[in-house]
Design a protein around this nucleic acid. Structure first.
Lengths: 184, 184
DNA sequence: GATAAATTTGAGCGAGTATTCCATATTGAC
DNA sequence: GTCAATATGGAATACTCGCTCAAATTTATC
């Protein structure tokens, strides 16, 4: 057992507060004051555990990005696997999913490390979808597989965004219909 | 002819600068200083023509929202009309389209008048899609028509997001495939 | 209890923010 | 040219931002 683990609890409170604020108001709503108020601490404590505000945000966003792509280096996945993983991500980890949709998708356009991470994630994810489609339809030329992957990913993200705006939207039901025919 | 029209030119310069900044860096990148620098004016001139920074941003966003839904009270439109209009919006007014998509993602969920406008626009647009589908497929129950409209709109937005991240993405080509079969 | 390390506090700094104010310059009808 | 309405420049204001730091407090070991 580690000595002095009081800081771990504080760190958890900070990350939780940051995540809530990201869900509620996007990156703009996250300030040192808002984090500290919600976590019930003072700025000094924050900077005892994090080097900067950006670091706390990045930590939450990194979790969200990792959660959408589980077991990235396991056995090769099918298109159905990927769609089901996205559905589970949204239904079972909706808080992180909200962060993901608000920050990761649009964040790729900003500057700084956040933008780089989001862009890198986008292309890695696109490659993963492309591989799954190419594996499932070997007759397709590589280029066509990537095109279909782009459309599938775009559709999934569009459906997810609809769910973000209208919480009652049945993402799972609509995503299910994309299983077999990823656009002719 | 109005007297004292020197201010009109300044107003135009301000709106142009604001639009460019919104395209380049989202709402966060828009400051009074950045607007004035880009427009070649001073803060005093800005506040002679606008009451606040938010007003200038809202003016640009209002243009973007209006541009995506042309002739809102003309003759009833078909699904194909709506898809073609979105395609034209993106291909022919890409600057405004970038503003529209950036705000739709990041701003539509925030507080304030910007969020209200974006949300209001979303549901008005959804209703318009629903009507077009219901008109084209009278056999569908109202509820099913709305569901299909949601999926169609989600797909179009998803494709548009993809285009926003990858400027080379062929939005028009992919949107064309949605003409006849808006998901079975 | 003494000691030292870990943790928290909270005032405060410098930079940047939106906005205001007013003196000055420009405009345009008469 | 006159004069009032309009437009501009640029310093000043009040505020929030991310962040720092020395002092105080808590925690674990002897």
């Amino acid at each position: 057992m580690a000595r002095y683990q009081a800081g771990l609890k504080t760190q958890e409170k900070i990350l939780e507060a940051t995540r809530d604020l990201l869900v509620g108001g996007g990156v703009e709503g996250v300030t040192i004051k808002s984090i500290c108020d919600r976590a019930g601490i003072q700025p000094g404590s924050f900077y005892n555990l994090f080097d900067s505000k950006e670091q706390a945000i990045l930590s939450v966003v990194r979790d969200a990005i990792n959660a959408v792509d589980p077991h990235p280096s396991g056995e090769p996945d099918t298109v159905r696997d990927l769609i089901e993983a996205y559905t589970r991500f949204i239904t079972e980890q909706s808080e992180l999913a909200r962060v993901y949709l608000r920050i990761a998708i649009s964040g790729g356009l900003g500057d700084g490390e956040l933008g780089e991470r989001a862009t890198h994630h986008h292309f890695r994810r696109l490659a993963r979808f492309t591989e799954a489609i190419a594996r499932q339809h070997p007759e397709l030329p590589e280029e066509e597989a990537e095109l279909q992957a782009e459309v599938l990913l775009a559709t999934l993200n569009g459906l997810a965004f609809m769910w973000l705006v209208e919480p009652g939207f049945d993402f799972a039901g609509h995503a299910e219909r994309l299983w077999m025919e990823p656009v002719a």
